[in-house]
Amino acid sequence: MSYNSIVLVKQVPDTRAVTGEVMTAEGTMNRAALPAIFNPEDLNALEMALQVRDQHGGTVTVLSMGPLQAAEVLRESLYRGADRVILLSDRKFAGADTQATSYSLAKAIQKIGAFDMVFCGRQAIDGDTAQVGPQTAEKLGVPQITYAESIVSLADGEVVVQRAFDLGTELVKCKLPCLLTVTGSANQPRPPSARKRIEYKLAAIPTEYPKLLEKHTEFGSAEALDQYLAEHHLKIEQWTTANLDVDESQLGLAGSPTQVYKVNYVVLESTESKDIAPTPEGIRALIEELIKEYIVG
């Protein structure tokens, strides 16, 4: 029995690398100053899907919604072993909250067709909401298994999964198809393969053709390049709203029930404070004061 998996991945700004330069004087964030990376837990999701395929056969399709630059995480997915990659990119998706995002992703998944499992990272480091997975599962009408730590068994149309939380674990059995959100401790994602890096070096979305043509003059024209990539399965599929059966009022900013009212850079308000000398006398006086004020004792 083989299984068809879909993995949802996101390119995110590396919020772990926020420095003074990234914050503007007005307290807003200069996202462009942050490196764009493969959302860490999405790599764990991809790895779990690849392991299912390696053990049982089947396919791994990777889907990402985002700007055109997100083609990069799809190339990385190919280097790691994905069979098919799709970029969902359209201006109309811009400004989507998790509700609108999950709507668009669910529509794209329905277009991909029958699947056994959808894998997502537990959460993305730019929002930390952990909402898109469950919201997509609801729109697909399939059960969800969040905090998935490992697949214990997979047989007879059912998957047994170990879930892991800070304070415990749970073993669940679920009918397929279903959606899993995968924790960062689930596995060690495989590195990109050197062979696949060469194999998929040219993999690109049409918007990237001009850049490719500059480097590879041998193709001569965009048409010739397109034909070559298509023949060699190197064309990264790019879908827009035109490819999907969507209700446009549910997309992007307009389809997002939540709105950002304001964003504040955290300003330190100095507390009224006392300087205490790091000497035996200073410390003794401090302890006496704390005892007198019933803070200790």
Partner: peptide
Amino acid sequence: APIFQVAHYKIVGDLGEVLPLLIKALREK
């Protein structure tokens, strides 16, 4: 250090020296 901006009591010093002083002062009390 930014922590001082939220602190009510600031002790600028090496914790290797300050912590033993605090422990000692508490034991005495």
